[in-house]
Amino acid sequence: MSNRKFDIFAKGFFKENPTFVLLLGMCPTLATTTSAINGLSMGLATLFVLVLSNIVISAIAPLVPDKVHIPVYIVVIATFVTILQFAMQAYTPDMYKTLGLFIPLIVVNCIVLGRAEAFASKNGIVDSALDGLGIGFGFTMSLTILGMVREILGSGSIFGWKFISGDGLLVFVMAPGAFLAMGYLMVLFNRIAKKN
């Protein structure tokens, strides 16, 4: 892999991390990270849509008239989201129930449309796929970290493996804990970014 291609892939993890740096897609980030495994699943679901929609959009972008490009992109994204909904209903029905509304809401996740508009519509298919993979894995990583923090504090377990008996600080599994955990993680991220 050439250096430039690697850069396209790697930027999603730190330099342009969608969650901590670009602050995109906050709704699923906060809502679905009640545990590490939920965060991971939501991240992978978004990754799936992101990569496929990036590939298709970079392929059709030259053919789409400028005036209607946003509606066309939204239809492409919504199509992949619907495919994902079917696949999850069939193969992982429990996870589909847990993530619930946030699977169809990937359509309005600003990360997906943002990458389509800012990257895929101007670059080739391979680059766009790499960009989708990088940003998607960056998003997955952020969600998993946030989910892990909330699960450790909130229920005293990690990926479902319980290391303390009884309940944790329940507030971290509920809504306020999402905001608090996210806020403090962001502080940590800023601090590391500043050091480098």
Partner: peptide, 14 residues
């Protein structure tokens, strides 16, 4: 390090 969004998120949590 709290300036901007982080402090807003913590406030929102409260």
């Amino acid at each position: 390090t709290f300036k901007g969004v982080p402090i807003a998120l913590v406030t929102c949590g409260i």
